[in-house]
């Protein structure tokens, strides 16, 4: 079930990839995808290139995929460390639905780069800065992009 569905979803995304997103399999393993995402235009992350790792559990689609940033990023909803764990609504276990597809997950990540969700933050300091000092936040984010995501 899992492999069949993942293979089909991979084929769909490969055939018509959404703008700014590229996917490939890690060592031909359908449960491990490499995702390359361009920082969306109009966001502080524009111009950066972010590598993400998408792991699909054997129970997929009954368990949510796990997504992490391999490229370090300055963002309220992504841990600012080498793990790059992220907190995104669609992937939370209580809201994950088997009808959700990987494409929708990737588009949600793009949205999260455009619109951080400071109330659901993993990095409280960055969330505070985003809420109280937006110019400062954007400056720091752009600096981080130059440092890590070029």
């Amino acid at each position: 079930m899992a492999a069949k569905r993942i293979t089909r979803e991979y084929a769909e995304i490969s055939e018509s990839p959404p703008s700014g997103i590229n996917v490939s399999l890690d060592n031909d393993n359908v449960h491990k995808w490499n995702v390359v995402m361009a920082g969306p235009e109009g966001s502080p992350y524009a111009g950066g290139t972010f590598h993400l790792s998408l792991t699909l559990p054997p129970e997929y689609p009954f368990k949510a995929p796990v997504l992490s940033f391999k490229t370090r990023i300055y963002h309220p909803n992504v841990t600012n460390d080498e793990k790059g764990s992220m907190c995104i609504g669609i992937l939370k276990s209580e809201s994950w639905k088997p009808s959700s597809k990987i494409l929708a997950v990737l588009l949600a990540v793009q949205d999260l780069l455009r619109e951080p969700v400071p109330d659901d933050a993993l990095e409280a300091q960055i969330a505070d800065k985003f809420k109280n000092d937006r110019p400062g936040f954007e400056r720091d984010a752009k600096d981080a992009v130059k440092r890590w995501a070029k």
Binding site: S93, E94, A121, L122, A124, Q125, A127, D128
Partner: peptide
Amino acid sequence: MEDQHNNVFELAEQRRLAQEY
């Protein structure tokens, strides 16, 4: 303010752990 955030985070973390358990 930061404490509050940490508390919320810890709560969410505990909830997540409970679910995984």
